[in-house]
């Protein structure tokens, strides 16, 4: 094993400092007692208390959670169906348009997606609120889900499902009992991706949200436009913690699943 060169070690260290220092500062200053965010005045958790008493933020957080759960679940169902179509359906009329519509939202600027959906909702007279945000988020995140799931489906061994069909399963049973459990990790990571995309989205939500429903990013955005605030620092710290814990748990779980599968495969190979 060659030791890392001086140059590589430096560029990695500086790179990771660049990636993490801003967030670290945010976390540290969320515990600052002073209202002046850039001057340290002792440790305090009072901004977390303020945040918990802030009705507007709590309402927005609740709306955001509802939207994220609903849209990511819908997106996972639709995205998995779309992935099955892309990988297995072969040729059908309008296939080019279909795959175009799956990939286009991935590169479409958010301002355009948001604008076009808003114009649609106004055109058909749908009042803007939770429903319209869910529809908007489902539409763009189903595309991400279908990309994740179809990359797993490509390597799926079709003979397993054929065996289930030979043994008397219906098509749906074969899918639910054989295929779905095998592709489950991809479906779950698709759901998680859709969930974080929805939690995170500001631009599309600001176009499709109405006065009756505001999401957390919209609230945060209108607050930070006026400058840095200790309450937003506290909120950011909570969100960073949730994401960090979630991502690390997910990666540990999937690592364990991979080890288990490898062991099972080896055992099956010996038998």
């Amino acid at each position: 094993m060659r030791r890392m060169s001086w140059f590589n070690a430096t560029s990695l260290t500086l790179g990771f400092v660049f990636l993490y220092l801003p967030m670290l500062i945010l976390v540290i200053f969320s515990f600052n007692a002073s209202k002046l965010v850039t001057i340290w005045a002792g440790f305090s958790t009072k901004w977390y208390g303020e945040l918990m008493r802030n009705e507007a933020f709590l309402d927005a957080a609740w709306v955001t959670a509802k939207v994220a759960v609903a849209s990511s679940t819908l997106a996972t169902v639709l995205g998995t169906m779309a992935a099955l179509v892309l990988v297995r359906a072969g040729r059908f009329p309008g296939r080019t348009l279909f795959s175009g519509m799956i990939y286009a939202p991935l590169v479409m600027p958010e301002v355009i997606t948001g604008l076009s959906l808003l114009l649609l909702f106004i055109g058909i007279g749908l009042d803007r609120g939770v429903l319209t945000i869910v529809l908007a988020h489902t539409t763009f995140s189903m595309c991400y889900v279908s990309v994740v799931v179809s990359s797993r489906l490509v390597t799926f061994d079709d003979s397993l499902e054929e065996a289930a069909l030979d043994l008397g399963c219906s098509r749906l049973e074969a899918f639910l009992l054989v295929t779905l459990p095998i592709i489950a990790p991809a479906v779950i990571s698709g759901w998680l991706l859709a969930f974080t995309l929805s939690l995170d989205d500001l631009v599309i939500a600001s176009f499709t949200a109405g006065p009756s429903a505001t999401t957390l990013p919209i609230k945060v955005f209108s607050a930070v436009r006026l400058g840095v605030s200790p309450e937003i620092n506290a909120l950011s710290t909570i969100m960073i913690t949730i994401v960090a814990v979630g991502v690390i748990t997910a990666s540990l779980v999937s690592k364990r699943a991979a080890v288990k599968r490898r062991n099972e495969e080896q055992a099956a190979g010996r038998a």
């Binding site: 990636l19 801003p22 945010l26 850039t38 945060v220 620092n233 960073i240």
Partner: peptide, 16 residues
């Protein structure tokens, strides 16, 4: 990891 935390927060962190 930073990529999965909120985009808005990452941009905001530079304001301070």
């Amino acid at each position: 990891l930073p990529f999965s935390t909120s985009f808005l927060i990452r941009v905001y962190s530079w304001m301070g």
